[in-house]
Simulated assay, not measured.
Amino acid sequence: MTKILNVSHLRKSYTSGNKELVVLDDISFGIDEGATFSIVGPSGSGKTTLLGLCAGLDKADSGEVLLCGVALSNLNEDERAQLRNREIGFIFQDFQLIPTLTALENVSVPLELQGEKGASATAMELLKKVGLADRSHHYPSQLSGGEQQRVALARAFCNRPRILFADEPTGNLDEETGNKVVQLLFDLNKEAGTTLVIVTHDLELARKTQHILRLKGGKMLSNESLPST
């Protein structure tokens, strides 16, 4: 099985005053193409920092990230951005929709930036899949939190990413709405064959994935494969 993500001896620290704060210390793991994978741990364990390093949003102090066969340390900021636009989808806890654009426009923007024809038609098809075709011309402020996250889901899949990073995707949602969003996320992911990496403190959500990596205090406690259900 081809590894879409390989992380080797990753270390990340920040300087606070004259002290060094180690956020991640010697993290190594790999993720197979098409797998579902979760990163769990308490607040401050380094989960979001690790996701940012894996996605090329930040650079490690040492170690290496191979993403889609490319060593991120060899890329400059523009090249990392190009790789993200081409290969990666993102879902964030706070939705990150553009407030001045409609749901349809929010979903179609990534395709339009890549110069794809039929961006609106593709975006509308994805909005149908997440049950929001009738809300396509509403602005984010006119949508509930659950509806905004469904728009974000549609946007994340619109450019057919090879790997999707979801950072606490249900963190701002009530339990019932969060469960619906999670079901949509896994359904869309299965249909697209995308690799899914979820950062979460929710163990119930993590157990829906095939692998769980546990962090505590910036160190990796375990990396376990779960039995197929």
Rank of each mutant, 00 (worst) to 15 (best):
L153F: 03
L67R: 04
A121G: 08
V23H: 07
C158G: 01
A81N: 03
L72P: 00
T49C: 04
I163W: 02
L153T: 03
D32T: 07
H138V: 05
L126F: 13
E87K: 13
K117I: 13
V23W: 03
G118E: 13
L67C: 12
G89Y: 00
I91N: 02
R84Y: 05
R80Y: 06
A119P: 14
N85G: 12
R84E: 05
A152L: 01
G63S: 06
S73W: 06
A154Q: 08
K47G: 00
S62K: 12
L67P: 04
P161A: 06
Q82Y: 02
T36V: 04
G89I: 01
S28G: 11
K129Y: 10
E64G: 12
A152Q: 12
A121K: 15
Q82R: 12
I163P: 00
S62C: 07
L51D: 03
F92R: 13
A103G: 09
S62T: 11
K128L: 07
D94C: 08
R160G: 01
V65S: 03
S136Y: 04
P99C: 05
A133T: 12
K117C: 13
L21Y: 04
L66R: 04
S136G: 08
I98H: 02
C54Y: 01
K47N: 00
T100K: 12
D61E: 04
S108A: 15
T49I: 03
V23I: 15
C158M: 03
F29S: 11
D94Q: 15
G69F: 06
S28Y: 01
E77N: 03
Q148E: 03
T122H: 15
G69D: 07
G52C: 05
T102P: 11
L50K: 05
L126Q: 09
E64W: 02
L97E: 08
G52N: 15
P42Q: 05
L113F: 15
C54F: 00
E116T: 14
Q148K: 15
R135Q: 13
R155Y: 09
V23K: 04
L113C: 15
T100A: 11
N76D: 15
L50D: 04
L97V: 07
A133P: 10
D61Y: 06
N106R: 11
L21A: 05
S144W: 05
R150N: 09
E125A: 15
F37D: 05
E33W: 00
V22L: 08
E125G: 15
G146E: 09
E116Q: 15
I39Q: 05
G115F: 10
A119T: 15
I163A: 09
V130L: 10
E79V: 02
E147V: 03
N85A: 14
L127N: 14
S141R: 13
L51Y: 02
R150K: 11
E125F: 13
D26C: 14
L143V: 08
G34W: 00
V65E: 04
L21V: 06
Q93D: 02
L101E: 10
P42L: 01
L83F: 02
R155K: 08
D25Q: 07
K129N: 12
F29I: 06
S73L: 02
L164C: 01
I39G: 07
